[in-house]
């Protein structure tokens, strides 16, 4: 069913990463723009979801505009043997939206686990973090909380290699 060429797939990829047009038949609009069929657009997006290239497909919202003004990146310096266990505990927490391991860059940067907590206020975020640390006995781990003070840019990643894809 899915018979798009590599170029057509690249074109569709570049088009959808900008977002669907808000019209009655968005997939048809994309199809016409790319000179392919509506069915091919839909089935290709479906297959990208199945393959895991697309993690989710839907509304991408800006937390700040929804009243979630406090955005804390919590960074932890955890011993290698403990990282997996703690990361899995954090990842299961409702308020944690991301949980990634990243490399230390010594001597500049000692933290190897990152998680993100969004809240409506700084106090709320700190309270949630304190609660998590207490419930899981994480108070002994060295950590740091980096609140954001200003968002200079917030948009989806652009991976398409087209030079004019701005």
């Amino acid at each position: 069913m899915m018979t798009l060429s590599a170029d057509q797939q690249a074109g569709l990829f570049a088009a959808i990463e900008q977002g669907l047009p808000l019209v009655e038949r968005p997939y048809l609009a994309l199809a016409e723009q790319l000179a392919i069929s509506e069915m091919a657009v839909i089935s290709t997006i479906e297959s990208w979801q199945t393959q895991g290239l697309i993690r989710r497909f839907g509304l991408v919202v800006r937390h700040r505009k929804l009243g979630y003004q406090a955005n804390a990146m919590v960074v932890w310096d955890i011993a290698a043997e403990d990282t997996e266990r703690v990361a899995d505990l954090l990842a299961k927490e409702e308020v944690v939206t991301l949980c990634y391991e990243r490399p230390r860059v010594l001597p500049h940067w000692r933290y190897n686990l990152f998680c993100m907590i969004h809240g409506k206020s700084r106090e709320q975020v700190l309270k949630q973090l304190a609660d998590i640390c207490q419930r899981h006995q994480l108070n002994k781990i060295t950590k740091n909380v980096l609140f954001s003070t200003k968002a200079y840019k917030q948009r989806g990643g652009r991976y398409a290699a087209t030079a004019n894809g701005a």
Binding site: G19, I45, Q51, G52, L53, V61, R62, K65, R155
Partner: peptide, 15 residues
């Protein structure tokens, strides 16, 4: 500005 876009969030490692 609430809606950034309606579309995919790609898996960074694959995309």
């Amino acid at each position: 500005g609430v809606l950034s876009r309606l579309g995919p969030v790609f898996n960074h490692q694959q995309a």
